[in-house]
Design a protein around this nucleic acid. Structure first.
Lengths: 240, 240
DNA sequence: CAGTGGTCTAGACCACAAC
DNA sequence: TTGTGGTCTAGACCACTGG
């Protein structure tokens, strides 16, 4: 009684990473210029000597990187202009500062509970009469002001926020540990330094200030709006 | 002779999207708080009534979104601080302008071929004596200056660039169609308006200007460095 | 060294969209 | 209508790494 020989163990199997590399090569430095219609998954899988599943994953990831355009029935096509997407990590300020090897310090400058002003209600789609908590705080790196945080929190959605005093830790750390978010709007811009930026960040009046504005909602309900103003010379950088 | 009954067709099969949604729910608004160690893939697959493959994909995508931390043998753990990553699409200016429903116009302001200045050689890791092409151009939306482009191209890596005159189309469109890139460094910052920004973008001297700087390499060889200065009030926004 | 995630396979049905 | 990508399954071996 003889056993059937075992199927080959995974010796030289083609991995989806290898497939990806070859596909990228053919796109960026090979025959598949912009606009090219690629063969179907089955055909490609045969050519590369892998299963359709593996080929599908390779093509999916290359698509995610912005090089391909895939549609049922229409097939897979090389993007005319490889829409590059940059990924920016938005860490907690504290992590950002400590990662740079600097010491972190936090200070609360102002804390007010008030009915939402009109501009905020419009900006965040807040109902009339909603109460909000307004906070202003500074984050220091090695004792020097690094970032000024101007935040509004919807107390209607988060009543417990009114009991937090935020003297020891910033509202951001409390928020990430407390509420989720389903919708985020993020903007980067250059603003002129206002009085607060002059006082706290050491800018001259009118100086260019790199500013991040982030608004978040959870299930259509406004959570928070924050403006982060950065110190002189700050750059937000990413590599890929 | 009877046929075996066919296996159930895909009626109520659990999709990886449903699994993802439930996992996210448990993380953001359920029992899996930060630091929680999740059950293994097999166990979860059984609980969710799906295959391990499907569970794996769901967990992989949630991980990509920055909520989980996975390591062989150690298992899957909920990130303490869900590292938020924002994705920014960096389209061609032309596409950006036309997408907004405005008409696009392009103008070349300056074109010079010269040996790379020292600061550029240092910035781009260029060899001594490398020749570069320096271009300055403007992109208009509905006739109004929208973006000022100040670009340096490594003619040592791309000799054919010297034959392009770039009077009709911008260097960016030529570059994306000509060279790939293996390494990109992207920065956002706020700069004070210089003379060029004053003349071309209508800024007042010293006005805050939202600036993007992008440097690209291909196989360790410098390709191009570009600074994009934007008109007053420009915001780079993303939603997710 | 043993457990967990990483990945490949072959086969199958489904859903969307171009023709 | 029909072709192409989208996804699920069951089973298997591998590779990394924590204990």
């Amino acid at each position: 009684m003889t056993m059937e020989p075992q199927v080959d163990p995974m010796l030289d199997r083609t991995t989806y990473r290898e497939v990806m590399a070859e596909i990228l090569h053919r796109i960026t430095d090979g025959p598949w210029g912009p606009g090219t219609l690629l063969p179907g998954e089955i055909e490609l899988a045969e050519e590369f000597g892998c299963s359709r599943t593996t080929m599908n994953r390779a093509l999916r990831e290359v698509t995610e990187q912005g090089f391909l355009d895939r549609r049922r029935k229409a097939g897979t096509r090389v993007r005319m202009a490889p829409l590059r997407q940059a990924r920016f990590e938005m860490p907690l300020v504290r992590a950002e500062i400590e990662k740079a090897g600097a010491s972190y310090r936090y200070a609360l400058l102002a804390r007010d509970s008030l009915p939402a002003p009109d501009w905020l209600r419009a900006r965040m789609r807040l109902p009339a009469g909603a109460r909000v908590l307004h906070l202003v705080c500074v984050h220091f790196a090695d004792g020097i002001a690094f970032q000024l945080e101007d935040r509004w929190i919807n107390a209607r959605a988060l009543p417990q926020v009114l009991k937090q005093d935020f003297t020891a830790t910033g509202p951001n750390e409390w928020l990430v540990a407390t509420v989720p978010f389903s919708e985020v709007e993020l903007s980067f811009m250059a603003c002129a330094a206002d009085a607060m930026a002059v006082d706290q960040l050491g800018h001259a009046p009118g100086d260019p200030v790199f500013t991040v504005e982030r608004a978040t909602w959870w299930q259509s309900e406004a959570i928070t709006l924050v403006r982060l103003s950065h110190r002189k010379g700050y750059r937000m950088t990413t590599r890929y």
